[in-house]
């Protein structure tokens, strides 16, 4: 009996110490909102104003500049994307914004591999960030238990604690202060890098990555649910693929299957699929030298041009014009004109 009492006492001490040390780091990190992606309070302060939402992952976050959309389209937009954003999180945040805003347009940003993300392994980083974008502990607990795999709870803990420790200084000095990402309404400024491939590199990677429709678990179902929600609210929905570098396209094969997938989905859900990789002016508009920060994310220079092109296309669509002439009809045709094909 005495042994059991000693053991229970030691376990009690352990739980108290472990919880206290963890809380001292994680609670300020979650509550102080000093990291760029922690915009819960900011978004709350914009309630009622937002009528245009960009919903995607890192490519959407880098490609769309809300301020430009506001100026040119006369809307009040917000970029609700974060790196590796899990599908369940996208649905949850969209529903939250729809509940307090009269949203007219939603852009669902898609990419070649966004549905393959294995929640937990690739996306545990993002799961942790999603938790920090929920502004109450019961909401966080609900998301944790509903949408994060049990074996990944440890990964979420690890990420939370490590990020908290590394950013302790920022957290305590910048308490409540929002950084530039709030000013840019969710858009992330990325620095350009010259990612042009040499001839040897291009030859080595050409068509080494086949596009496959191997979607992870219920990612695809949740995407369809998002589109249904938009339809139910009478929202104009665009499924958009943000341009990636010529090098990245050069690596892939079978991308026309991706094009077909997008077109089928758009037809099924009564919206439009716009793959800006196939924009006929892409080779003048975007270069591997300037327009990208890495092979599949736009730099600020690239984003400025892309957002303009997006606005032009969307304005034409809303005026009732046919925009199909502005795009290549297939990836095969587009790739034939690639600088690497020469």
């Amino acid at each position: 009996m005495r042994t059991i009492k000693q053991i229970l006492l030691s376990l009690l001490y352990f739980v108290v110490f472990f919880a206290t040390i963890s809380a001292m780091v994680i609670i300020p990190y979650y509550n102080n909102e000093s990291m760029g992606y922690q915009d819960a309070s900011y978004r709350k302060s914009l309630a009622g104003k937002i009528d245009y939402i960009i919903l995607g992952a890192s490519q959407g976050q880098a490609g769309f500049i809300p301020k430009t959309l506001d100026e040119e389209l006369g809307c009040y937009s917000y970029n609700l994307s974060i790196v590796l954003m899990p599908m369940h999180a996208r649905k949850m945040e969209l529903e939250q914004e729809l509940s307090r805003n009269d949203v007219k347009t939603v852009v669902v940003e898609v990419s070649y591999d966004f549905l393959q993300l294995e929640a937990g392994h690739d996306a545990a980083v993002a799961d942790e960030r999603v938790l920090t974008r929920i502004d109450n502990w019961s909401g966080r607990f609900e998301y944790l238990t509903k949408h994060i795999r049990f074996d990944d709870w440890l990964n979420v803990y690890a990420h939370s604690f490590v990020t908290g420790i590394i950013n302790m200084k920022t957290m305590y000095y910048n308490r409540g202060l929002n950084n530039e990402m709030n000013d840019s309404k969710g858009h992330l400024y990325r620095y350009k890098a010259d990612i042009t491939l040499t001839a040897e590199e291009a030859a080595a990677i050409h068509e080494t990555k086949p596009y496959e429709r191997n979607f992870y678990k219920d990612n695809y179902e949740v995407l369809k649910e998002i589109l249904d929600i938009c339809n139910e609210h009478g929202i104009t929905t665009y499924i958009v693929c943000v341009p990636v570098s010529d090098a990245y396209v050069w690596e892939y094969s079978n991308l026309d299957d991706f094009l077909q997938w997008g077109q089928e989905l758009a037809a099924e859900k009564n919206c439009l699929f716009l793959d800006f990789n196939l924009l006929k002016t892409r080779y003048e508009d975007f270069t591997d030298k300037e327009s990208f920060s890495d092979k599949d994310h736009m730099s600020e220079e690239g984003a400025i041009v892309f957002t303009q092109r997006y606005i032009e296309v969307v304005k034409k669509i809303e005026a009732g014009e046919d925009v199909s002439g502005m795009f290549y009809s297939s990836y095969i045709d587009m790739i034939a004109d690639s600088p690497y094909a020469k």
Binding site: S10, Y13, I21, A158
Partner: peptide, 25 residues
């Protein structure tokens, strides 16, 4: 004393559960 030992173990476990889990990943 027991309480000191458990505190040290708790610190160790926090480090393992955070930096350790990240590294193992």
């Amino acid at each position: 004393p027991q309480v000191v030992r458990v505190f040290i173990i708790a610190v160790l476990v926090v480090l393992i559960a955070s930096f350790g889990v990240q590294a193992t990943w």
